[in-house]
Amino acid sequence: MPASEAAQVVETIFFNLASTVTDGVASARMLKRSYADRWRPLPTRKEAILAESDTPAEPTRRDFLLHAAGAFGVVGVAAAAWPFIDQMNPDASTRALASVEVDISGVKPGQAVTIMWRGKPVVIRNRTEKEVEEGKAVKLEDLKDPLARNANGDANADATDANRAAAGKENILVMTKVCTHLGCIPLDESGEFGGWFCPCHGSQYDTAGRIRKGPAPENLPIPPYAFISDSKIRIG
C-alpha cells in the first residue's frame, strides 16, 4: 500500500477517534459542573478572587483549550504510531539485497538456472528453438490472461511470446517462478503445454510461462532485469 493511501486511512481513523475523545471530555465537563455546584457555598480563596475579577465562565477559552489538547493528543499518538508500523517494513539490509547479478554463460539451450531474488526463485531459461516456436504459435485469444506481465515493458502489452522473452534475445526467458494462484513453486519442463506445472492445484503454464489451464489467474510475472553484458543479467 502506498504511503499516501496509508496516511489517509490513518487520518480517517484518528479524526473519528478525535471526535469521540472530545465528546467524552464534554460529558466529563457536565459531570464536573454538577460536582462544582455542590461546592458553590464554600468560601474558597480562589472563588473569592474569581468572583471579583472574572466573569463566571468563559466557554470559548475552555473549549479552545480542550480542543487544542485533544488535537495535540491525537497528532502525538498518530505520529508516535508510525515508527511502530514502519518497523515491520523490510529493513535496510533486506533492501540492500534488492538486486542480484547472474552469469548465464553456462546455461545451454534447453537448460535453466534458478536463483533467489528477494527471497523468491527466479528462473532464467535458455529456451530451445522448438519451445520458442511453440510459444509463438499460440493465438492471443486462447490465452487466459492476455497481458504480458512484464515489468520491463508496457503494463498493457499483449502476452505475445516476444513481449515475454528478453528484448532482442528471444530464447531467454526470465520469470519469477511463483504460481500466481497461491504462491507454490511450479515444476520446470512439465505439464500439458511443455512449460511449467504447479503441483499444488494443477495450474499449467506454457513455454512462455503463460497460464493456460487451472486455477491460477495470471501469467508468471517477469521481474525487472537488464543485461549488463552478453552473459550477465542483473535482476532487480
Binding site: 515508527p83 511502530f84 514502519d86 518497523q87 517494513n89 529493513d91 535496510a92 539490509s93 533486506t94
Partner: peptide, 13 residues
C-alpha cells in the same frame, strides 16, 4: 545491532 542500524526506526524503539 541490526535493530540499531538496519531496522526502520529500530534505534528509536
Amino acid at each position: 545491532e541490526s535493530i540499531m542500524r538496519d531496522v526502520n526506526w529500530g534505534w528509536l524503539i
